[in-house]
């Protein structure tokens, strides 16, 4: 109990700094970074919960994170590599496809899980206060762990095909961050919309399928005519996946105007997503009700 007292005196010592003011807020606002920092462990624990629970009661557990992209790679290689004979920027098609599939799967899974995250965790948000933006954020963090696991498959495939990365590799983290920011931005938008309009959950599977083919996953962006590149870059995942292949496999033309457009779109989505989420979060609890007593 001596520990308890220490904590309490500590809080008293801070005096007025620990006073929480509760009142109606209005208008747009950005993140409360100080508060988020205080809740950083919750972010970690919720992501840990998502990962831990995801593969419980499965026979092969984490291996699913490997099997899913590999299975998709096999199908795409047969359909688009062998039958349709799509070009692959001069690298073996399976490797080309996997380097696109991995970020794509993490992205599409993250946004669909983010979209439903607030509804899934409604018991939590209707009973305890914490920065609500943590909820969609954790789903993307958990997705990144899947990504790390799937990455080992890519490394093995690179060894098999004897393709070594060049100096471009130093840019890889930047493209992973770009992917995460894109997923977070879209996740913030969709989760805030989904809590009021469950239509989102119905539109999303159809949207991601369409989106897959608007993204250079099964084909290289070099197939898209030069004059359309800027338009093509409006899909932020174009920039992510092209950049991913370029930094890892040395394939493609490297960052250009298309990448710049993608970065711009991604940043816009991220910031506007936060703003929208923060604006709508006031009524989340009222929108879902108390979910039983």
């Amino acid at each position: 109990m001596s520990g308890n007292r220490a904590v309490r005196e500590d809080a008293k010592g801070h005096g007025d700094s620990s006073v929480v003011s509760i009142r109606a807020t209005t208008g747009w606002r950005f993140l409360d970074l100080g508060e988020l920092w205080k809740y950083r462990e919750l972010l970690y624990f919720l992501a840990w919960r998502d990962i831990k629970v995801r593969y419980k009661q499965t026979a092969i557990g984490l291996a699913w994170a490997l099997i899913q992209p590999l299975a998709m790679m096999a199908i795409f290689t047969i359909l688009f590599g062998k039958l349709a004979k799509l070009p692959s920027d001069g690298i073996p098609y399976p490797l080309f496809a996997l380097a696109g599939i991995m970020p794509w799967q993490v992205f599409s899974r993250s946004i669909s899980e983010s979209a439903s995250s607030l509804v899934t965790d409604q018991r939590l948000i209707t009973r305890i206060y914490f920065p609500r933006i943590i909820v969609p954020t954790t789903t993307v963090l958990a997705g990144l762990v899947d990504f790390a696991i799937a990455f080992t498959a890519l490394v093995i495939l690179m060894l098999i095909y004897r393709i070594a990365p060049n100096i471009n590799l130093v840019f890889l983290p930047a493209f992973i961050i770009l992917m995460a920011i894109t997923a977070l931005g879209i996740g913030y938008w969709l989760s805030a919309l989904n809590i009021e309009y469950r239509d989102v959950a119905y539109v999303l599977p159809f949207l991601t399928q369409f989106w897959l083919f608007a993204t250079p996953v099964v084909y290289p962006s070099s197939m898209v005519p030069e004059q359309w590149q800027i338009l093509y870059g409006l899909n932020p995942m174009s920039g992510v996946i092209e950049g991913f292949r370029w930094s890892l496999l040395g394939a493609g033309r490297g960052p250009g105007i298309m990448t710049a457009v993608s970065v711009l779109v991604s940043a816009t989505l991220f910031i506007s997503g936060i703003m929208w989420f923060r604006r709508r979060e006031r009524t989340f609890v009222d929108a879902v009700g108390s979910g039983g007593r």
Binding site: S18, V20, A24, T126, R282, V285
Partner: peptide
């Protein structure tokens, strides 16, 4: 008071965790 939902009007102040 536990900040789960915002008040429509008025305000409150709570000291401490």
């Amino acid at each position: 008071l536990s900040r789960i939902t915002e008040p429509t009007q008025g305000w409150a102040e709570v000291r401490g965790r």
